[in-house]
């Protein structure tokens, strides 16, 4: 887990926001947060093509992509699923479910819960300004 944490920290520090979106689809852009009691960092760059939410998870070496992404805008409920690889190279599904807060703000957030390998907990993903 320590290796996983340090990898995420490295990726956080080297991640370059490549999506300039601010005011379009509320999920588009760069989001960051941490999960688990070890504060594993998570960076997701999401996009929207008119039909599907896609995204890169922890960009850089070892990055993965969002497998499924849903936004129920009637209640601003978000569901994301993506594979994450642990420090011994095993991959498992990581899922996020939560509510988008301050939707019209540039620094909106997704507050909810994560699930990974039978563990779960709460977290906050925050959209990065200017990204």
């Amino acid at each position: 887990m320590t290796h996983l944490r340090s990898t995420f920290l490295f990726l956080l520090l080297t991640a370059i926001p490549v999506v300039q979106a601010q005011e379009g689809h509320p999920l588009v852009g760069t989001w960051q947060g941490s999960w688990s009691e070890n504060n594993n960092f998570l960076t997701i760059i999401m996009n929207w093509d008119g039909q599907r939410i896609s995204g890169i998870v922890n960009p850089g070496p070892g990055s993965t992509e969002i497998e499924t992404g849903n936004l129920d805008s009637s209640r601003w409920h978000v569901e994301l699923e993506m594979p994450l690889t642990d420090d011994i190279g095993d991959s498992a599904d990581f899922s996020i479910e939560g509510e988008m807060i301050n939707v019209t703000s540039r620094t909106r957030s997704i507050n909810g819960n994560w699930r990974y390998r039978g563990d779960s907990g709460s977290f906050i993903l925050t959209r990065q300004r200017g990204a």
Partner: peptide, 17 residues
């Protein structure tokens, strides 16, 4: 276009498409 602005009064959204 980027998505950093409102392309109309009234708050109509748009995308990069």
């Amino acid at each position: 276009f980027n998505e950093g602005f409102w392309f109309s009064n009234g708050g109509l959204p748009h995308s990069r498409l």
